[in-house]
Design a protein around this nucleic acid. Structure first.
Lengths: 205, 205
DNA sequence: AACCAACCTGACCTCGAGTACAGTAAATTC
DNA sequence: GAATTTACTGTACTCGAGGTCAGGTTGGTT
């Protein structure tokens, strides 16, 4: 990574934490460059304007998130052939990952952007939408594979069950933040796992 | 309601929508007073500073939310004596209420404040925390009553199952907003309901 | 040695934000 | 009907925000 890329990443790191803690509108370029020890002109060399910072921030977050999900659920599939058990293992790995964050989850960019939507141009909003649709697709594929083997014990829409992964994570993050109890997030993921277990297991216990 | 209270409520209405759409930091007093057709000094007559607006906004939101939950779950209890079925009915009523919002849910103040936490003084943050704890308490009480009659079919922590109500709502709101699909929220609540059904029902069908 | 692109710095501009404070018209109280 | 309170308006101030532009330094290419 060249010197320019390094600076850019540093700017994004600083911006990311600030955006998750104060929102995009309250995150000033002034404060980012102060922490990054760079001048304002230096900042604008890397990003044309604040909206380009927003786009880059979201894109980087989504790439990382996709990478993490690939890693965890691929690993889960390695550990178990059965689609249901692989999914349950993947959820456990995810819960553990979330529990291992030292200061709790810093926040979900997608959620932060939802509560700042009016600030962004359509391209950023569409990026956000596409990301959530991607997660839906990812988990719907797993769930269909599961449902083909284990008929669900309740009449549910698999697409919504797929959405529930994102919902549990985003909801869990909010509760963790509001309560100041980082553990809440992983507990919510494990409850989703419990639902999947009950929904698809032929016998329970 | 006197003239002053009326103005105050109008200011809060305008601020609420803006905060949920752009975040608190990006919501300017200037824009609020422009829409409310009042001067800046008029605004500061009602609120000492921006932080007092924040507190009033959250307080009003929480009062309304508590009122709504009281209404729905009291009504549910009227409709069915059994604690499990009453809870399931309450969740259905909640899902319907959420589905009936014409333009989708405008957003949860608690969630918005979580992603703006650094902007507020400790009293506001503590108000936010207390609210979530209140919801936890409310639903834990219902779940304990249920669990006393119907032993849960999975080894779960009832406090987390209680938190899952808030988590489903907040997660559902975020997905709805990100996707531009208002229906997602009520579907997530109904999935939580499905989980409760599977978790406590002696027989499934 | 000359050049050039990448990576910045410094000085400057404009605008709107939050805030202060003095004044005032209308309603309410005494 | 005088005094007080409520509910504002008008004016003025400061500061930090996002953004521009012209210039400078550095390390590698020709």
């Amino acid at each position: 990574m060249g010197k320019g890329q390094e600076t850019r990443e540093r700017l994004l790191d600083i911006a990311e934490l600030s955006v998750l803690a104060k929102g995009f509108g309250a995150t000033s370029i002034e404060e980012i460059i102060a922490e990054a020890q760079i001048t304002k002109s230096g900042f604008f060399y890397h990003f044309r304007d604040k909206n380009e910072l927003a786009r880059a921030l979201l894109q980087r977050y989504l790439d990382r998130e996709d990478g993490l999900l690939d890693e965890l659920f691929d690993r889960a599939r390695e550990l178990h052939d059965d689609p249901l058990h692989a999914f349950l293992i993947g959820l456990k790995l995810l819960a553990e990952k979330m529990a291992d964050l030292p200061n709790g989850h810093p926040g979900c960019m997608v959620a932060a952007y939802c509560y700042n939507e009016r600030l962004f141009d359509p391209s950023v909003r569409s990026l956000n939408r596409t990301a959530v649709l991607g997660w839906r697709e990812r988990f719907v594929a797993m769930l269909e594979e599961i449902a083909a083997v284990y008929p669900p014990r309740d009449d549910v829409d698999l697409q919504s069950v797929a959405d529930m992964v994102s919902s549990s994570v985003d909801g869990g993050i909010i509760l963790s933040k509001a309560l100041g109890e980082p553990a809440v997030l992983s507990k919510q993921i494990l409850l989703y796992r419990s639902y999947i277990k009950l929904l698809f297991s032929p016998t329970v216990d």
